[in-house]
Design a protein around this nucleic acid. Structure first.
Length: 313
DNA sequence: TGCGCGCCTTGAGG
DNA sequence: ACCTCAAGGCGCG
């Protein structure tokens, strides 16, 4: 039986509410009324709660899931990259850029997760021309359908994220289409097949951590449904490329409104994509991707609504 | 090679 | 009812 334990960690170093629902991971859910954040990973259910100076945590295991030993604390330290001192980074970025200083003051504790590349990759194939809310429900359906069932907790069924081999099955494309995935259904199925065909196992994805940003990016771009932006998301969020800057519509708007960077038209050309990334890298290196994610969060209307909720009652 | 354009699915919000 | 937009990618000219 597991019990609650805690890791010393201030909200300035990590804010669960913003970090877990700002569109980098899509399977965390807030449980009410406990206020816990819950998800399934590595064969167990994770329960987290933010306290004043600690992150409290515990894991739940199903009956036959004591297979492999799992050090929960070291997993969480790795997943949240707690060795990275976020407070120092904010100070550094703020000292180098007044705009960041002003904008970030309302968004402390926004941290890049070190995710599983498989989940990260297939989640972000779903992200194209889509919104965070719907991406979340799509990933949820995918996990319920193809991921291993772990256990039920408080009436909710928890599944691991699907194995690549499950997503490579012939029937997956039509099934995902029926589930409302649209044109992304084909990309998911084809990318899964291609990974297994050309690289034997999904371990290949983890091996990209050892490559440079440019090399890893070039590999990812070979997969269907993965363009420059999604490749940079994967590089940043699961492959340790801290300088990777995914430029989406939000980052583009911030670059234009707050930093005066704009192209000739309103479309995001390859040149503008590189200019924006280059500008932020000059400002915020070597953790430029982390800094740009803070700016990204500040532009999310979805979060601004959520932030007001607790005060209204 | 680089760029601009239309198209691709769905569903929430205006 | 109709439009736009949402962490875009692809194929074409």
């Amino acid at each position: 039986m597991t019990t609650w334990k805690s890791i010393r960690c201030s909200p300035a170093q990590l804010r669960l509410d913003v970090t877990l629902c700002c569109g980098q991971a899509f399977r965390w859910r807030r449980d009410e009324p406990s206020g816990e954040w819950r998800t399934a990973m590595k064969g167990v259910v994770w329960r987290l709660k933010q306290e004043e100076n600690d992150i409290r945590y515990r894991i739940e295991m199903g009956k036959d899931q004591a297979k492999k030993p799992l050090n929960a604390e070291s997993f969480l330290r790795d997943y949240f990259q707690l060795d990275v001192d976020l407070v120092s980074l904010y100070e550094n970025w703020s000292s180098r850029d007044d705009t960041f200083k002003r904008v970030s003051s309302n968004y402390s504790g926004v941290r890049i997760l070190r995710q599983d590349p498989v989940e990260n990759l297939f989640s972000f194939i779903c992200s194209s021309n889509n919104n965070i809310k719907r991406i979340g429900s799509m990933i949820e359906k995918m996990s319920q359908t193809y991921g291993e069932f772990l256990m039920e907790l408080d009436g909710y069924k928890y599944h691991d994220f699907p194995l690549v081999s499950k997503l490579a099955d012939e029937r997956v494309e039509s099934q995902l289409r029926e589930m409302g995935f649209g044109y992304r259904a084909k990309y998911i199925n084809q990318s899964a097949k291609k990974i297994l065909d050309e690289h034997e196992t999904a371990d290949w994805l983890f091996s990209l951590r050892k490559l440079s940003h440019e090399e890893a990016r070039r590999e990812l771009l070979q997969l269907p449904g993965i363009g420059p932006k999604v490749a940079d998301c994967i590089c940043l969020m699961s492959l340790d490329k801290t300088e990777s800057i995914p430029v989406d519509t939000h980052v583009q708007q911030i670059a234009e409104k707050l930093y005066g960077l704009k192209g000739k038209g309103k479309s995001l050309t390859g040149k503008l994509y590189q200019d924006i990334g280059g500008h932020f890298r000059r400002l915020f290196s070597p953790y430029a991707g982390w800094a740009s994610s803070v700016l990204f969060v500040s532009d999310l209307r979805q979060l601004q609504i959520q932030r007001k909720r607790p005060r209204e009652q």
